[in-house]
């Protein structure tokens, strides 16, 4: 029973990772940029969640607001930060992104204070018993949101004209452009969706912990970087599997590796071991 509970806790954490990592892997797939500042957008979502919920009393409103506002900020990040340096060597965008992320974290600290914010009344605190296991409503909502949003994204990509244009742009941008696809629009859409998902993840993490702090993005989102590498950079399905797997491995690892490794280091231990064996990631095609 204990093992099953750990497994479920792992899936919950994995859903959060998935919501964050999908945006990252989308950006990588399209622009070949490691978008470290994605972590800052996740934190921004957390702040939006707490502030809007405390103001309106509704976490649903907060989720919608976070998705839209963080999505919009994501598009602004693309326009003002990445677009001007797309033609430079890849390390330029990577380092710029790290700089942007650190600056964002510091801005959160300066604007909202170093100790973080909490909910006046913590939403989604009910619990349900499923198969003898207590699950908090917030945990169920997290999993449900991850499943619905990422499933919806799959439908959008697979079944619509927009999705077709998107996939075409990811595989061969020049060809897509010559067929009349506006690849700049595709990039905006890509950043909007990826960032909105990170915003939603931020809200759910803030509800789960009843806390947002300036540094809440750091660890989760560095892990998201590890996850997209494991998933084979740019591969959405691989990213999902890697996110859930890592969530579960961590849940067990926290119990069985506690005396040896920090929870947060497990992701990177797994990452390094797997990369040494399969340099293209678990699900990547070899280059």
């Amino acid at each position: 029973m204990f093992l099953v509970e750990l497994f479920v806790q792992g899936l919950i954490q994995g859903s959060v990772y998935a919501l964050i990592a999908v945006g990252l892997t989308l950006v990588y797939g399209l622009l070949r940029i490691l978008h470290v500042a994605h972590a800052g957008l996740f934190t921004l979502g957390g702040y939006a969640g707490v502030l809007v919920t405390n103001a309106t009393g509704s976490v649903a409103v907060a989720l919608v607001f976070a998705a839209l506002s963080v999505g919009a900020v994501g598009m602004a990040v693309y326009r003002f930060c990445y677009e001007p340096i797309l033609r430079r060597p890849p390390y330029v965008a990577l380092i710029a992104s790290i700089g942007l992320f650190i600056a964002m974290e510091e801005l959160f600290r300066i604007v909202f204070g170093p100790f973080g914010l909490t909910y006046d009344i913590v939403p989604l605190q009910g619990s349900v018993v499923i198969g003898g296991m207590y699950l908090r409503s917030a945990e169920l909502v997290t999993m449900a949101l991850a499943a619905v949003l990422i499933g919806g994204l799959g439908l959008l990509a697979g079944r619509t004209r927009i999705g077709l244009a998107w996939r075409a742009t990811v595989s061969v941008p020049e060809m897509a452009e010559s067929f009349g696809i506006d690849i700049v629009k595709v990039r905006y859409l890509n950043f909007f969706i990826g960032s909105a998902l990170a915003g939603v993840a931020g809200v759910m993490v803030s509800v789960l912990n009843n806390l947002v702090e300036p540094t809440m993005g750091s660890v989760a989102s560095y892990k998201a970087l590890a996850i997209i590498v494991l998933g084979g950079l740019g591969n959405v399905r691989g990213t999902l599997v890697a996110a859930l797997t890592l969530g579960v491995i961590e849940a067990y690892g926290t119990i069985y590796l506690a005396g040896f490794l920090d929870r947060d280091a497990i992701a990177f231990a797994v990452l390094i071991v797997i990369l040494m064996v399969r340099p293209q990631g678990l699900f990547g095609r070899s280059a």
């Binding site: 506690a258 920090d262 992701a267």
Partner: peptide
């Protein structure tokens, strides 16, 4: 190489901190 190496070395940094802490 490149991006993968950047993330691997970042991971080494986290491993160091995570290991020494315990």
């Amino acid at each position: 190489r490149h991006d993968f190496l950047a993330i691997t070395t970042m991971g080494v940094g986290f491993l160091f901190v995570g290991f020494t802490r315990q």
